[in-house]
Design a binder for these strands. Structure first.
Lengths: 249, 249
DNA sequence: ACAAAAGTGTTACGCATACACCCATGC
DNA sequence: GCATGGGTGTATGCGTAACACTTTTGT
């Protein structure tokens, strides 16, 4: 077991018979905050295995593209958004899932990505029934393949990243209120935050958000009109904004 | 661009001609703290491309193993340690590197792993010159392939994880002093920490370390003998131990 | 005696928490 | 008026930073 097997170690060169072909795919865990709930983009499988079950959108990595390029291409296809719109969305590699039996048909190694999108009109433009749609997180049965595990990892990652990055703005439209931003945290973390303290934390963090000058206020329903902000330049958050009673695992 | 291409989307089934064979490998970024320096396990390439350059150890994922199993197998091979010893080392998936041109010979998708090991006797037991050896971080020329980028990502990840996990104990032998543990932080972060404050932080965090009862003290050279500790049960660190002036990127 | 490292104690400050309170709008 | 959400102010407490001091070894 410990002895090197000739042909399987890279530094000694490639033996074309030392490996079987692997399929490499990407899977997407796409989140949005919509109607005060965390929603996930899913597709319904049309054939075996797992026919009828919900699954994460995804597809093959093409011969001349990186996994990241494949993920963004698939994201554009599944959401029906323009390439330029998708180019600005937050897309981040999660991790790679490589269990030999994760797909019963063949050996598939999948690089999972997490995407955060604002509350878009609707997933797709066409009427294609096989396309992806939003489902509130946790309201679907078991997902196909190992997608439940992928989605759980993605949710945990997103929740953790809200603590020490400015990532929450990725869930918001270009201009947003602090109430909307706070809604993101509360929805992803499943907790309530103190409004005054949240406001201070965000406004005193340099580069988290920047005030929109022109119209100093706008309404989202009833209540006092709120000031509008844009995402700032900063990406990190020091010190972090820890979730209350934060035990993450 | 936005239209679905038949055969490339997974939910519509597998087209055996929709993809070319990808080779899937693992690369290992193995760190240790040794002689008050951060050291990296590297191998010297024996042939083109990048002949003579240092590279991360790694190898192919075999048809019936996961990437994680492949990483642990390679770690055992490169370090020459027994499988049971390697089974207890901290090994963690970093991310996957999939640029189509990252290897000039063929399409190789590599799942990178980060391993943290204590100050081991010497990397290997045999006399094989082609085996891996420790080099102080930053003292080698440019690495082969995209391994400089992988190693930089790994270093950043390890530094960040020390902030909010109990991972530092993975660099230490089974029993260690608080001075040794502090040395880990100082070496990885490249800063000096206040000894009394570090001590308090570690001891007041439940489950970070646990005191070794029997012999209450032991020496590591000159100075007052220090108490010994073992790694505790906890994995997370709340609140985190932030590095001074912590700008991580 | 001196240096070096472990261990204890103390103070000050920053930040987060937990409130109380006022403002502006829709109904 | 009342409910709802935005915005401001303030007291309290925890945790870290900074630093002084004692203890115990090797040389």
């Amino acid at each position: 077991m410990t002895a090197p097997r000739p042909g399987a170690r890279r530094p000694d060169g490639y033996d074309p018979h030392a490996f079987e072909p692997f399929a490499v795919t990407v899977d997407l865990a796409v989140f949005t905050v919509r109607e005060e709930r965390l929603q996930v983009l899913l597709v319904q499988r049309g054939q075996e295995p797992y026919q009828g079950a919900w699954a994460l959108p995804g597809g093959f990595v093409l011969p001349r593209e990186s996994a990241g390029q494949a993920a963004r291409r698939e994201l554009a296809e599944e959401t029906g958004l323009s390439d330029t719109t998708v180019a600005h969305l937050h897309l981040e590699q999660l991790r790679t899932y490589s269990d030999p039996d994760r797909d019963p048909r063949m050996r598939v190694v999948s690089v999972a990505y997490t995407a955060l999108v604002p509350d878009l009109p609707e997933p797709r433009g066409g009427g294609d029934a096989a396309h992806a749609q939003w489902l509130p997180h946790g309201t679907y049965g078991p997902l196909a393949f190992d997608h439940d595990a992928i989605l759980a990892d993605a949710h945990e990652r997103v929740g953790a990243k809200l603590e020490y990055t400015c990532l929450a703005t990725a869930f918001c439209p270009p201009e947003f209120t602090l109430g909307e931003l706070r809604q993101v945290y509360e929805t992803v973390w499943g907790v309530e935050l103190d409004r005054p303290n949240f406001r201070r934390k965000v406004l005193t963090t340099p580069g988290f958000v920047q005030a929109v000058e022109g119209p100093p206020r706008l309404t989202g329903g009833r209540g006092k009109p709120a000031a509008l902000y844009r995402a700032g330049e900063a990406t990190a958050l020091h010190p972090p904004l820890l979730r209350p009673e934060g035990r993450q695992k």
